[in-house]
Design a protein around this nucleic acid. Structure first.
Lengths: 227, 227
DNA sequence: ATGGTATAATTGTCTGACAACATGATTGTG
DNA sequence: CACAATCATGTTGTCAGACAATTATACCAT
């Protein structure tokens, strides 16, 4: 493999780490390749074993390489941590998850809402009404509404799950799909009506209604998507 | 701050790294705190400076600490608050979310399972039976089963949500709660029966049964927890 | 060819030393 | 007394050499 450049200044092990790290993730090494031995690396970088070992141990603890006593240091993976699962989420996956989750969230929210949260919800309702008059359709208030319900449910797992949902929706331009469905004027009005029904049920503490209205709302979304 | 335990075997710098890493992300150190000097750490771990420095340089290259020559090693971050939501998840939150999610996951899994996955599921069933004879109760196969269903459902959001659930369960020693409920012999047998019923329904593609059995299973969990 | 053994290569750890730098105490001077 | 320069001390960064533990390889006898 390639030779490394001798290092010059300011914390050798950092420069050595960066050089080897870049060499690995840039694909100069394949998975399973063996790095040069520490002795060779010392010669390449023109340093002692200490900074080389500090760099290598950091790479190992980062999961990039695997060092085995007596054998050598082997490349374990050449790609940075991929938590990029959003690309394999299909639109129907999101709708399905929301159909299952959100009615229960609405019910819990209606059961547990307090005065402070009622004020916040009224504020959101106002913004829904303002938004109804505008020409452009945005999903910010929509998102805010559903996340508010999750928070009000008091179940932190629901909050995190809904944030996952919306993060995924943003990551993949769902705007396009929305533009074909709820973004049209007719559907926007219906959407608004449904939101207001749910909000009112939550405000009144009518848990069963909140559940039912949210279920309807989600089923509407489902049908609109598949039509 | 606290003292560290002397290390014993098998790559000292890994154990040292883990101990310091855990001490930092668990909040035993605030941002800006100074770690003990290398000399002190050597005394605490009862090792030489070499593995201590290898662990510290890895922490620095991971961005957790900042080591300044002549001054000391200072904590840079204690892990973003983002990952720190698990502590506010209550046990009933987890049960509630699972009650809502998992029946639908089971249904989807039964609808979409293919031959390869059937083989994997049979393998899991075998391990359930092996585990039934052992004395100690572990949750590894249980977790594997439920995560398998999520994967088989084909809904990546469900997979991520279930991973969230189990990660949370592990983070907050649910073992303790389990030891009071499902860990007892009587419940373990019932648990096993329920799992096998669900698995068989999924294997046969009986979606409605898978849904119903999983719902029962979750309701059983719910009742066991609250009793 | 095959299997076992000796040898070499490689990583893991220790010890001791010194250089580079930061901080606070000491001292000297106005 | 105030203040600045100097020094002592503690800390991290690096070097050199050594040995232990483990693995891979070469060699040899059968």
């Amino acid at each position: 493999m390639k030779s490394f450049s001798p290092v010059s200044s300011n914390k050798l092990y950092i420069q050595i780490y960066n050089q080897i790290h870049d060499a690995i993730i840039s694909g100069q090494y394949e998975v399973g390749d063996r790095l040069p031995s520490e002795k060779d690396l010392c010669a390449m970088f023109n340093v002692s074993r200490v900074p080389v070992r500090e760099a290598l141990s950091a790479l190992e603890l980062n999961g990039l390489v695997d060092s085995m006593q007596g054998a050598g240091v082997y490349v374990k993976r050449t790609t940075p941590e991929k938590d990029d699962w959003t690309h394999e989420v299909e639109p129907q996956d999101i709708i399905r998850a929301r159909m299952v989750l959100e009615p229960d969230i609405a019910r819990l929210a209606a059961e547990q809402i307090n005065e402070e949260q009622r004020a916040e919800l009224r504020d959101i309702i106002e913004r829904f009404k303002e938004e109804a008059d505008e020409d452009v359709y945005t999903t910010t208030v929509d998102k805010e509404f559903h996340l508010f319900l999750a928070k009000t449910s008091g179940n932190t797992l629901y909050v995190m799950m809904m944030e996952m949902v919306f993060k995924t929706m943003e990551q993949r331009m769902w705007e396009l799909i929305l533009s074909r469905t709820v973004a049209t004027k007719k559907y926007r009005e219906q959407n608004n009506r449904e939101h207001l029904h749910i909000a009112q049920a939550v405000l009144d503490g009518r848990a069963d209604d909140a559940y039912a209205f949210m279920k309807d709302h989600m089923e509407q979304l489902y049908e609109r998507y598949w039509s």
